[in-house]
Design a binder for these strands. Structure first.
Lengths: 131, 131
DNA sequence: ATAAACCCTAAAGTATACTATAGAGTCAAG
DNA sequence: CTTGACTCTATAGTATACTTTAGGGTTTAT
């Protein structure tokens, strides 16, 4: 799979794919005889993950770390992975919690603020969050 | 409340507070006789919201838009708010969904990959997401 | 009354994550 | 056999979100 096909497939710019490669987020693919990059199908999964992780506020560095998770039978590495995943799980729980708060505030504005006569006073994100 | 106190209170740098003001995210506060900014208590709530919204991947521009939600009795404005909040609700639902996926993958790695003998093969974020 | 700690503006500098440009080679269709 | 679409590297430019610097005034504690 050539870079243009991959770019179309995942909806990411060609330049960005090459940039991700330089940053170590995307494995260096095999090259064809002519020097063109030849991506394996699994590159699609990697990029979809990168897209989604970016959407929810992870930096490229953090995403790189997530993609780098590897457990070996070495106890040391195992403990490190346990520790790392725990930290990330906590971060994610926090993110979900914050999103849930913001969502409920927006929902409140969406469902009630355009209905009544005197409800408009509460229809800002901050006042919706307060109550 | 002076800018240093506010900065300490919310855990955001003084320079960043002034930057947010220039970007229209934070209301211009009253000034004391000496020209110092004098923030009302509600600035704390605004900044906590900004922090949380940033954490989950919203840009300053998007946060500004969220903070600007105002419903008046004007039908036109009301429809605009409805439309805007619906779009944001969809975005947030998507973010929560993605975070939930990533979370379950990490949980899988966290709970199972350091246990058995031959489990290590599945212990990457991508393979954990697949299944 | 003076030094440390705080505040001000304006402007330059930095990190992250792209995005575009230049100059060149490769390939498929007519 | 050439033209248009694709690829390559290297490098420069841009947008966002800070962060630092410079040069100055104010407040508080000793």
């Amino acid at each position: 799979m050539k870079i243009g096909d991959l770019a179309t497939e995942v909806g990411i710019d060609i330049q960005t794919l090459r940039y991700y490669e330089t940053q170590g987020l995307l494995d260096e693919p095999q090259r064809l005889q002519n020097g063109y990059r030849d991506y394996p199908d699994k590159a699609i999964a990697s990029l979809m993950f990168i897209k989604k992780a970016k959407l929810v506020g992870f930096t490229l560095k953090e995403i790189k770390d997530l993609l780098a998770i590897q457990v070996t039978k070495d106890e040391h590495t195992c403990q490190e992975v346990k520790k790392f995943t725990q930290i990330k799980l906590d971060e994610i729980s926090k993110k979900i919690k914050e999103l849930t708060h913001i969502k409920s505030a927006l929902k409140k504005i969406h469902t009630s603020c355009c209905g009544g006569d005197e409800t408009a006073a509460h229809c800002s994100i901050l006042s919706a969050l307060e109550s």
